[in-house]
Design a binder for these strands. Structure first.
Length: 301
DNA sequence: AACCGTCACAACCGCATGCGA
DNA sequence: CTCGCATGCGGTTGTGACGGT
Protein backbone atom coordinates (compact mmCIF):
# COMPACT_ATOMS: atom_id res chain seq x y z
CA UNK A 1 0.00 0.00 0.00
CA UNK A 2 2.90 2.28 0.58
CA UNK A 3 5.96 2.95 -1.42
CA UNK A 4 9.37 1.74 -0.54
CA UNK A 5 11.59 4.65 0.38
CA UNK A 6 14.23 5.45 -2.15
CA UNK A 7 16.59 8.23 -3.05
CA UNK A 8 16.71 10.25 -6.18
CA UNK A 9 19.73 11.69 -7.88
CA UNK A 10 19.89 14.84 -5.81
CA UNK A 11 19.96 12.89 -2.57
CA UNK A 12 16.44 13.81 -1.60
CA UNK A 13 14.32 11.04 -0.29
CA UNK A 14 11.31 9.89 -2.21
CA UNK A 15 8.62 7.38 -1.56
CA UNK A 16 6.89 6.52 1.65
CA UNK A 17 7.22 8.87 4.55
CA UNK A 18 8.59 7.36 7.71
CA UNK A 19 7.11 8.07 11.15
CA UNK A 20 10.26 10.01 11.99
CA UNK A 21 9.82 12.24 8.98
CA UNK A 22 6.18 12.74 9.81
CA UNK A 23 7.01 13.78 13.32
CA UNK A 24 9.69 16.16 12.15
CA UNK A 25 7.31 17.77 9.72
CA UNK A 26 4.46 17.98 12.18
CA UNK A 27 6.70 19.37 14.87
CA UNK A 28 8.19 21.93 12.55
CA UNK A 29 4.99 23.14 10.93
CA UNK A 30 3.19 23.19 14.23
CA UNK A 31 5.88 25.28 15.76
CA UNK A 32 6.96 27.49 12.91
CA UNK A 33 4.18 27.31 10.38
CA UNK A 34 4.66 26.65 6.71
CA UNK A 35 6.34 29.93 5.84
CA UNK A 36 7.98 28.59 2.69
CA UNK A 37 7.59 25.04 1.49
CA UNK A 38 10.70 25.15 -0.64
CA UNK A 39 12.89 26.19 2.28
CA UNK A 40 11.04 24.28 4.94
CA UNK A 41 12.60 20.83 4.56
CA UNK A 42 16.05 22.29 4.97
CA UNK A 43 15.15 23.92 8.26
CA UNK A 44 13.08 21.00 9.43
CA UNK A 45 15.90 18.58 8.85
CA UNK A 46 14.08 16.67 6.17
CA UNK A 47 15.75 15.24 3.09
CA UNK A 48 12.65 15.89 1.06
CA UNK A 49 11.69 18.39 -1.55
CA UNK A 50 9.29 21.10 -0.49
CA UNK A 51 6.67 19.79 -2.78
CA UNK A 52 6.74 16.43 -1.11
CA UNK A 53 6.51 18.06 2.32
CA UNK A 54 3.58 20.16 1.29
CA UNK A 55 1.78 17.18 -0.16
CA UNK A 56 2.40 15.08 2.91
CA UNK A 57 1.17 17.84 5.16
CA UNK A 58 -1.86 18.73 3.11
CA UNK A 59 -2.99 15.20 2.43
CA UNK A 60 -2.07 13.37 5.55
CA UNK A 61 -0.68 15.27 8.51
CA UNK A 62 -2.60 18.47 8.75
CA UNK A 63 -5.17 18.82 11.52
CA UNK A 64 -8.87 18.26 11.09
CA UNK A 65 -8.44 15.68 8.39
CA UNK A 66 -11.14 13.11 8.48
CA UNK A 67 -9.91 9.66 7.76
CA UNK A 68 -11.65 6.41 7.19
CA UNK A 69 -14.55 5.39 5.05
CA UNK A 70 -16.66 7.86 3.17
CA UNK A 71 -20.21 8.15 4.38
CA UNK A 72 -23.09 7.70 1.92
CA UNK A 73 -23.78 11.42 2.28
CA UNK A 74 -20.21 12.25 1.36
CA UNK A 75 -20.30 9.93 -1.61
CA UNK A 76 -23.52 11.45 -2.78
CA UNK A 77 -22.01 14.89 -2.45
CA UNK A 78 -18.96 13.83 -4.44
CA UNK A 79 -21.06 12.47 -7.26
CA UNK A 80 -23.31 15.49 -7.29
CA UNK A 81 -20.39 17.92 -7.27
CA UNK A 82 -18.60 15.91 -9.93
CA UNK A 83 -21.64 16.17 -12.08
CA UNK A 84 -21.85 19.87 -11.43
CA UNK A 85 -18.19 20.89 -11.52
CA UNK A 86 -16.45 18.14 -13.42
CA UNK A 87 -13.19 16.74 -12.15
CA UNK A 88 -12.27 19.81 -10.16
CA UNK A 89 -11.23 17.78 -7.17
CA UNK A 90 -10.08 20.67 -5.05
CA UNK A 91 -13.42 22.40 -5.50
CA UNK A 92 -15.21 19.21 -4.60
CA UNK A 93 -12.98 18.77 -1.58
CA UNK A 94 -13.99 22.22 -0.43
CA UNK A 95 -17.51 20.88 -0.04
CA UNK A 96 -16.34 18.08 2.19
CA UNK A 97 -14.57 19.39 5.27
CA UNK A 98 -11.81 17.11 6.39
CA UNK A 99 -11.43 15.39 3.05
CA UNK A 100 -8.58 16.08 0.67
CA UNK A 101 -8.79 16.34 -3.07
CA UNK A 102 -6.40 13.43 -3.36
CA UNK A 103 -8.55 11.29 -1.12
CA UNK A 104 -11.70 12.15 -3.03
CA UNK A 105 -9.99 11.57 -6.34
CA UNK A 106 -8.74 8.17 -5.23
CA UNK A 107 -12.14 7.20 -3.87
CA UNK A 108 -13.78 8.16 -7.12
CA UNK A 109 -11.36 6.23 -9.29
CA UNK A 110 -11.32 3.13 -7.13
CA UNK A 111 -14.88 2.88 -5.93
CA UNK A 112 -17.45 5.41 -7.01
CA UNK A 113 -16.68 5.35 -10.72
CA UNK A 114 -17.18 1.62 -10.96
CA UNK A 115 -20.31 1.78 -8.91
CA UNK A 116 -21.66 4.46 -11.18
CA UNK A 117 -20.74 2.51 -14.27
CA UNK A 118 -22.47 -0.55 -12.92
CA UNK A 119 -25.46 1.55 -12.14
CA UNK A 120 -25.38 2.94 -15.67
CA UNK A 121 -25.30 -0.53 -17.16
CA UNK A 122 -28.14 -1.58 -14.93
CA UNK A 123 -30.14 1.46 -15.94
CA UNK A 124 -29.44 0.78 -19.61
CA UNK A 125 -30.47 -2.81 -19.25
CA UNK A 126 -33.61 -1.80 -17.48
CA UNK A 127 -34.33 0.76 -20.14
CA UNK A 128 -33.64 -1.74 -22.90
CA UNK A 129 -35.89 -4.23 -21.24
CA UNK A 130 -38.59 -1.64 -20.82
CA UNK A 131 -38.16 -0.57 -24.41
CA UNK A 132 -38.34 -4.14 -25.55
CA UNK A 133 -41.54 -4.71 -23.63
CA UNK A 134 -42.99 -1.54 -25.05
CA UNK A 135 -41.86 -2.59 -28.50
CA UNK A 136 -43.44 -5.97 -28.22
CA UNK A 137 -46.60 -4.40 -27.01
CA UNK A 138 -46.68 -1.77 -29.71
CA UNK A 139 -45.22 -4.01 -32.35
CA UNK A 140 -42.71 -1.36 -33.42
CA UNK A 141 -39.05 -1.78 -34.37
CA UNK A 142 -36.99 0.60 -32.26
CA UNK A 143 -33.18 0.88 -32.20
CA UNK A 144 -31.11 0.73 -29.04
CA UNK A 145 -29.61 4.01 -27.95
CA UNK A 146 -26.16 4.24 -29.52
CA UNK A 147 -25.09 7.20 -27.51
CA UNK A 148 -25.45 5.47 -24.21
CA UNK A 149 -26.26 7.13 -20.98
CA UNK A 150 -24.03 9.90 -19.87
CA UNK A 151 -25.53 10.65 -16.51
CA UNK A 152 -24.58 8.03 -14.03
CA UNK A 153 -25.61 7.79 -10.44
CA UNK A 154 -25.45 5.01 -7.93
CA UNK A 155 -28.57 2.94 -7.68
CA UNK A 156 -28.98 3.97 -4.11
CA UNK A 157 -28.59 7.68 -4.72
CA UNK A 158 -31.35 10.14 -5.27
CA UNK A 159 -29.56 12.94 -6.99
CA UNK A 160 -31.33 16.04 -8.03
CA UNK A 161 -30.29 18.21 -10.91
CA UNK A 162 -30.92 21.15 -8.74
CA UNK A 163 -27.46 22.29 -7.78
CA UNK A 164 -28.83 24.33 -4.94
CA UNK A 165 -29.81 21.27 -3.04
CA UNK A 166 -28.95 22.03 0.49
CA UNK A 167 -26.79 19.11 1.26
CA UNK A 168 -24.84 19.86 4.32
CA UNK A 169 -21.55 18.03 4.55
CA UNK A 170 -21.35 15.79 7.49
CA UNK A 171 -19.64 17.41 10.38
CA UNK A 172 -16.40 15.87 11.37
CA UNK A 173 -17.50 14.96 14.80
CA UNK A 174 -16.14 11.49 14.50
CA UNK A 175 -12.57 12.59 14.57
CA UNK A 176 -11.15 16.04 14.30
CA UNK A 177 -7.64 14.80 14.40
CA UNK A 178 -5.73 12.75 11.98
CA UNK A 179 -3.78 9.79 13.01
CA UNK A 180 -0.18 10.51 12.28
CA UNK A 181 0.56 7.16 10.79
CA UNK A 182 -1.01 3.81 10.55
CA UNK A 183 2.31 2.22 11.18
CA UNK A 184 2.32 3.01 14.82
CA UNK A 185 4.28 0.04 15.92
CA UNK A 186 7.37 1.36 14.28
CA UNK A 187 7.40 4.56 16.25
CA UNK A 188 8.68 3.09 19.43
CA UNK A 189 12.34 3.78 19.00
CA UNK A 190 12.80 7.06 17.29
CA UNK A 191 16.28 8.37 16.95
CA UNK A 192 16.77 11.77 15.45
CA UNK A 193 20.09 12.38 13.88
CA UNK A 194 20.15 15.99 12.86
CA UNK A 195 21.28 19.37 13.98
CA UNK A 196 17.90 20.47 15.10
CA UNK A 197 17.90 20.05 18.78
CA UNK A 198 14.35 21.08 19.21
CA UNK A 199 13.30 18.03 17.31
CA UNK A 200 15.17 15.62 19.49
CA UNK A 201 13.80 16.95 22.68
CA UNK A 202 10.66 18.60 21.61
CA UNK A 203 9.29 15.85 19.48
CA UNK A 204 10.48 12.92 21.45
CA UNK A 205 9.76 14.12 24.90
CA UNK A 206 7.28 16.87 24.71
CA UNK A 207 5.31 17.17 21.56
CA UNK A 208 3.30 14.03 21.84
CA UNK A 209 3.46 13.94 25.56
CA UNK A 210 1.69 17.26 25.64
CA UNK A 211 -1.24 15.66 23.95
CA UNK A 212 -1.29 12.55 26.00
CA UNK A 213 -4.02 12.44 28.58
CA UNK A 214 -3.15 9.17 30.14
CA UNK A 215 0.27 10.00 31.36
CA UNK A 216 1.50 7.08 29.37
CA UNK A 217 4.61 8.20 27.60
CA UNK A 218 4.96 5.46 25.06
CA UNK A 219 5.08 6.72 21.53
CA UNK A 220 2.24 4.50 20.53
CA UNK A 221 0.01 5.94 23.16
CA UNK A 222 1.08 9.43 22.30
CA UNK A 223 0.06 8.97 18.75
CA UNK A 224 -3.14 7.33 19.81
CA UNK A 225 -3.99 10.31 21.89
CA UNK A 226 -3.48 12.50 18.86
CA UNK A 227 -6.11 10.56 17.06
CA UNK A 228 -8.67 11.07 19.76
CA UNK A 229 -11.88 12.77 18.98
CA UNK A 230 -12.27 16.09 20.72
CA UNK A 231 -15.51 14.78 22.06
CA UNK A 232 -13.67 12.13 23.89
CA UNK A 233 -11.61 14.53 25.84
CA UNK A 234 -13.19 17.92 25.60
CA UNK A 235 -13.71 18.02 29.29
CA UNK A 236 -10.11 17.46 29.99
CA UNK A 237 -7.24 19.75 29.51
CA UNK A 238 -3.60 19.25 28.96
CA UNK A 239 -1.26 21.26 31.05
CA UNK A 240 1.74 22.05 28.99
CA UNK A 241 5.00 21.64 30.72
CA UNK A 242 8.19 21.63 28.82
CA UNK A 243 11.48 23.38 28.62
CA UNK A 244 11.72 23.64 24.93
CA UNK A 245 10.02 26.89 24.17
CA UNK A 246 7.03 25.17 22.74
CA UNK A 247 4.42 27.28 21.11
CA UNK A 248 2.08 25.66 23.54
CA UNK A 249 3.73 27.58 26.32
CA UNK A 250 2.05 30.66 25.01
CA UNK A 251 -1.25 29.30 26.17
CA UNK A 252 -0.26 27.30 29.17
CA UNK A 253 -3.29 25.13 28.92
CA UNK A 254 -4.37 23.36 25.83
CA UNK A 255 -7.40 21.21 25.34
CA UNK A 256 -8.26 18.97 22.49
CA UNK A 257 -10.97 21.40 21.65
CA UNK A 258 -8.61 24.20 20.98
CA UNK A 259 -5.34 22.54 20.23
CA UNK A 260 -5.49 22.93 16.50
CA UNK A 261 -7.96 25.76 16.33
CA UNK A 262 -6.23 28.22 18.61
CA UNK A 263 -3.89 30.63 16.93
CA UNK A 264 -0.41 30.34 18.22
CA UNK A 265 2.71 32.37 18.53
CA UNK A 266 4.90 31.15 15.76
CA UNK A 267 8.60 31.33 16.35
CA UNK A 268 10.24 32.41 13.15
CA UNK A 269 13.47 33.56 14.73
CA UNK A 270 15.44 31.04 12.77
CA UNK A 271 13.91 32.01 9.47
CA UNK A 272 16.19 34.12 7.27
CA UNK A 273 14.91 37.66 7.38
CA UNK A 274 14.99 38.00 3.63
CA UNK A 275 12.44 35.26 3.43
CA UNK A 276 9.99 36.94 5.71
CA UNK A 277 7.39 39.41 4.65
CA UNK A 278 7.84 42.83 6.25
CA UNK A 279 4.88 42.50 8.57
CA UNK A 280 6.43 39.40 10.01
CA UNK A 281 9.78 40.97 10.55
CA UNK A 282 8.31 44.01 12.19
CA UNK A 283 5.88 42.28 14.47
CA UNK A 284 6.76 40.74 17.76
CA UNK A 285 4.26 37.98 17.57
CA UNK A 286 3.27 36.09 14.52
CA UNK A 287 -0.14 34.62 14.59
CA UNK A 288 -1.11 32.70 11.51
CA UNK A 289 -4.79 32.86 10.85
CA UNK A 290 -6.31 29.48 11.40
CA UNK A 291 -8.06 29.32 8.06
CA UNK A 292 -4.83 29.85 6.25
CA UNK A 293 -2.37 28.35 8.60
CA UNK A 294 -2.41 24.82 7.37
CA UNK A 295 -2.40 25.67 3.74
CA UNK A 296 -0.86 29.05 3.41
CA UNK A 297 1.66 30.85 5.50
CA UNK A 298 -0.09 34.13 6.00
CA UNK A 299 1.03 35.79 9.14
CA UNK A 300 -0.89 38.58 10.72
CA UNK A 301 -0.16 40.81 13.62
C1' DA B 1 2.49 -22.72 -0.22
C1' DA B 2 3.00 -20.22 -4.32
C1' DC B 3 1.35 -17.55 -7.80
C1' DC B 4 -1.53 -14.10 -9.84
C1' DG B 5 -4.86 -10.46 -10.45
C1' DT B 6 -7.18 -6.75 -8.31
C1' DC B 7 -7.77 -3.13 -5.05
C1' DA B 8 -6.75 0.92 -2.33
C1' DC B 9 -4.25 4.82 -1.72
C1' DA B 10 0.08 7.39 -0.82
C1' DA B 11 3.07 9.78 -3.48
C1' DC B 12 5.08 11.57 -7.72
C1' DC B 13 5.09 14.30 -11.98
C1' DG B 14 4.17 17.90 -14.99
C1' DC B 15 1.54 21.72 -16.05
C1' DA B 16 -1.23 25.79 -14.58
C1' DT B 17 -1.76 29.72 -11.89
C1' DG B 18 -0.70 33.62 -8.97
C1' DC B 19 2.29 37.08 -7.61
C1' DG B 20 6.10 40.09 -6.94
C1' DA B 21 10.26 42.20 -8.97
C1' DC C 1 5.07 43.10 -20.27
C1' DT C 2 8.14 39.59 -18.97
C1' DC C 3 10.48 36.63 -16.02
C1' DG C 4 11.23 33.69 -12.17
C1' DC C 5 9.64 31.60 -8.15
C1' DA C 6 6.27 29.34 -5.09
C1' DT C 7 2.27 26.97 -4.79
C1' DG C 8 -1.93 24.53 -6.43
C1' DC C 9 -4.07 21.09 -9.13
C1' DG C 10 -5.20 16.89 -11.68
C1' DG C 11 -3.47 12.73 -13.85
C1' DT C 12 -0.79 8.89 -13.18
C1' DT C 13 2.18 5.53 -11.06
C1' DG C 14 4.03 2.32 -7.70
C1' DT C 15 3.48 -0.77 -4.03
C1' DG C 16 1.63 -3.55 -0.17
C1' DA C 17 -2.59 -5.94 1.11
C1' DC C 18 -5.77 -9.22 0.05
C1' DG C 19 -8.52 -12.74 -2.03
C1' DG C 20 -8.95 -16.43 -5.39
C1' DT C 21 -7.01 -20.39 -7.70
Amino acid sequence: MVRTPSCDKSGLRKGTWTPEEDMKLVAYVTRYGCWNWRQLPKFAGLARCGKSCRLRWMNYLRPNLKRGNFTPQEEECIIRMLKKLGNRWSAIAAELPGRTDNEIKNHWHTTLKKRCQQSTVTNEEARASKSKNKESRAGTNSVPNKNGVTVSVPATSQISDNSSDSFSPVSSSSSEFSSITSDRSSMGNLVFEDDFGFLDSYVNESFWKELNLDGDTSCTEMVDSCALSPNQSSSESVVVENDFGSFLDAYGEVTFDNFWSEPYVADVSHVPSELLVPSVVESEYFTPMYDDLWGQSHFVQ
